[in-house]
Amino acid sequence: MLSRIFFMATLFLLQACAAQSQLVQDELETVTRENLKYYLYYPEGYSPNGDKEFGILLFLHGGGESGGELGWVKRNGPPRLLAQGKQFPFLILAPQNPHEKKWWNAQAVMQLLDSVVDNSNVDSKRIYLTGLSRGGSGAWELATQYPDKFAAMAVVCGMAPLPYAHWIDKEMPIWVFHGDKDDVIAVDESDQMVNKLKEMGYDVRYTRYKGVGHNAWDRAYTTDSLYTWFAKQKRLD
């Protein structure tokens, strides 16, 4: 008898809880906050109050430079060349991903970029994008989420968002670099993305290094014609 009473009481309780279930509509405004350290290079002849506007290159480093000292950013890519004394014809913005094992925070990076552009003598139609490895993946992401922002993009051995290739601005020139012996991010990532873009009529060039592993950036970023190519690009809209 007691077990029957307990069963009935439990059943009643479950029915009461079920009767109280409801779907509530609500809204919460969220805010993205990220502490981004960065380097900003100003080219020769730049003046914040001058008549001449300059382009700007946003560089996203790879996973090996994340989450440590800001100086790590100078290990590869344009920051490394700057440390060696190379000069460029445009500004270079090189933030550091503060998280060792997280992807780039796209919204935070764009907030930083917009702030630098708004407070510098920069031509908003000559904003360039590049990244290597995890930063290359970040570059693809920015290109898909902010298709109206960049005048040109170069990606070095990054994972590619193949299903969203059509989100990228068709008028933006793209240059992809990858080593065919990459055992970290397979060259198939770039092969398939480049083929997809070409099928859709995009302006894309592909440098596929024979016998090169994941460090394709060593050759890609010492290609002087890359920076000449960047400097020639400008958005028309």
Rank of each mutant, 00 (worst) to 15 (best):
L113V: 07
K125E: 12
D51T: 10
P98V: 09
E65D: 11
G136L: 02
G67Y: 05
G71E: 15
P78L: 09
P43T: 08
L113A: 08
Y146R: 01
I92F: 06
L58Y: 09
T130R: 04
S47L: 07
Y41T: 00
Y46H: 07
P78Q: 10
P98G: 07
H99P: 01
L58P: 06
W72F: 12
G77S: 13
S120L: 11
A106H: 05
E69H: 13
L142M: 04
G68H: 07
T144M: 04
A106I: 12
N119K: 15
L82Y: 08
A83M: 08
G136I: 04
Q145M: 01
W72H: 11
G138L: 03
S115M: 08
L113Y: 09
K52P: 02
L57T: 07
N119G: 09
D123R: 04
L142Q: 01
P147M: 00
D114L: 11
Q84I: 05
H61S: 15
G71Q: 14
E65W: 06
N121Y: 08
G85I: 04
V116S: 12
D114G: 08
A108K: 06
L91G: 05
W72V: 05
R80H: 15
A106P: 01
N105Q: 15
F150H: 00
E65Y: 06
Q111R: 14
A94Y: 03
Y46I: 06
F88I: 06
K52S: 11
A106K: 07
G63W: 01
Y128H: 08
P89D: 15
G135H: 04
F88V: 05
G138F: 03
L58N: 04
I92W: 07
L129Q: 06
R75E: 13
P95W: 05
Q107Y: 09
L40N: 09
R134W: 00
E65A: 14
P147I: 01
F54C: 06
A151F: 05
V116K: 15
Q111N: 15
D148H: 02
M110Q: 13
P147A: 02
Y128M: 13
Q145S: 02
V122Q: 11
S115F: 12
F54T: 05
A83Q: 13
M110Y: 07
A143T: 00
L112K: 08
N97R: 05
K86E: 12
K101M: 10
G85Y: 08
P79N: 10
E65F: 04
V117H: 07
L93A: 03
V109P: 04
P147K: 02
L112H: 09
E53R: 13
E141H: 01
G85R: 10
